[in-house]
Amino acid sequence: MQERASRVMAPERRRRLVRTAAREFATAGYEGASLNRIIRDCGLSKSSFYHYVDSKQALFDLVVQDLGDQLTAALQVPAPGELAGPAFWEDVEDLLRRLLEVSRSNPAWTDLGRLFWAPGTPGGDGTALARAGAALQAWLLGALEAGRACGAVRDDLPAPLQADLTAAVLRALDEWGLRHPHALDGDEAHRLVVVQSALLRRVLAPDAPVPQAR
């Protein structure tokens, strides 16, 4: 299990296992991922591997939890309340830019992004993906509340709906970027950040038009 791995496994061996498994899951998908390949590439024996991690599901959760924690720490995600103020949208764009730069600095974090959107990944109650999704939803709701409080986000739509719309926009752009990594080299990648921010602003800002019912 994940907690067992964190207590027993040496830090460097754990990092190697997590990075190797992330690459395998991202390349082959959850169902196609081979524990035998992961074990071989990590230089572990099967008995040692199963002493640390007891199943493919436990290994997948370990990968998502570890890489997610590392990415969050490297990104220095602000508390939602810190976004409240006249620079709300500038801060949002800065966060998106830092997310791009940080995620591109480590291939394992790019692999993590693929795990979130890949079909067949285990995301039921109690899984690492479910916990990460709940944490993201809570952060988005808090950020929207901060934006409403400072007048940067419209308040004529339910906040949960706005959070779902925000997640849908980010997911669509993220999935496209992961499928077309070479199309986002250099200035094109930073242009995408500007587009992301502009799309979110059009959906969420008070001056964004809402079609009137006839």
Rank of each mutant, 00 (worst) to 15 (best):
S103A: 09
E145R: 11
P80E: 14
M9T: 08
A58V: 02
T72A: 10
A172T: 12
A138E: 12
A10C: 08
G142Q: 14
Y52K: 03
V18E: 03
P158S: 13
D54I: 00
E145L: 09
L17C: 02
T72M: 05
A5P: 05
N106Q: 15
C150D: 00
T127F: 14
R201H: 06
V18S: 03
Q2P: 06
G120R: 01
R4D: 06
A135D: 12
R40Q: 15
V169E: 05
N106C: 11
G124Q: 10
A138R: 12
A134F: 06
N36M: 11
L184E: 04
E31H: 09
P158G: 14
A10I: 08
A132V: 03
L178D: 07
A143H: 03
G68S: 03
A163H: 07
P211M: 10
V18Q: 02
R114W: 09
S105N: 04
G151M: 03
L71N: 02
G177K: 08
D187T: 10
V195L: 13
A26K: 07
P158Y: 12
Q162L: 15
G123D: 14
L17Q: 01
Y50F: 11
P181I: 01
D187N: 10
S45Q: 00
D41N: 10
V53C: 06
P160R: 10
M9L: 14
L75G: 02
P160E: 09
L136E: 13
E175I: 12
R13I: 05
L157K: 10
P160D: 13
L83G: 02
A128N: 00
A73K: 11
A135I: 07
V153S: 02
R97K: 02
A183N: 10
G120V: 05
T166H: 05
A152N: 00
A213Y: 11
L170C: 01
V169T: 10
P86F: 02
F116C: 13
A138H: 12
R114Y: 06
L71I: 05
A130L: 08
R16D: 00
L59A: 00
G124P: 08
P107M: 09
L115T: 04
A128F: 01
T27Q: 11
V194N: 12
V63D: 00
E12R: 15
R4P: 03
A183M: 13
E145Q: 12
V8Y: 11
R7Y: 13
L67W: 04
T110G: 15
A143T: 07
L115R: 02
